[in-house]
């Protein structure tokens, strides 16, 4: 198979509703709401109080699930671990001389 190498555009232009997001990640909307309340998954709340999710958060939630499954972490610990992993990724990207995703 041949792949054309295309620089990866920053996503986030498409927003997902709570239900679509829950279906995309295979989680129950109640659990998603809890994860948002715990700050593990980022979401925006519109004026009607509805939650909206960036498409990036689908991968973010999958990572939360994998980390929880792999290390039996609670949500507070998962939040800390993901923050640290993101910080390391940013440092490594800076060391490479390119912003993440850029």
């Amino acid at each position: 198979m041949t792949y054309a190498l295309i620089p990866y555009p920053r996503s986030g232009d498409r927003r997902l509703s709570l239900d679509v997001f829950a279906r995309a990640t295979g989680t129950h909307p109640d659990l998603v709401r809890r994860l948002v309340a715990l700050g593990v998954v980022d979401a925006e709340r519109d004026r009607a109080g509805q939650l909206w999710f960036s498409t990036d958060e689908v991968a973010a939630l999958a990572r939360v699930q994998r980390l929880r499954a792999g290390f039996a972490l609670n949500y507070a610990a998962v939040g800390l671990v993901t923050d640290l992993l993101d910080r390391i990724a940013a440092l490594q990207a800076a060391q490479r001389g390119s912003p993440p995703g850029g």
Binding site: A4, L5, P7, S98
Partner: peptide, 13 residues
């Protein structure tokens, strides 16, 4: 993979 002309060091693909 087709590497496009003008890739730079550290670029993520």
């Amino acid at each position: 993979v087709d590497v496009p002309a003008g890739v730079t060091d550290g670029q993520r693909i």
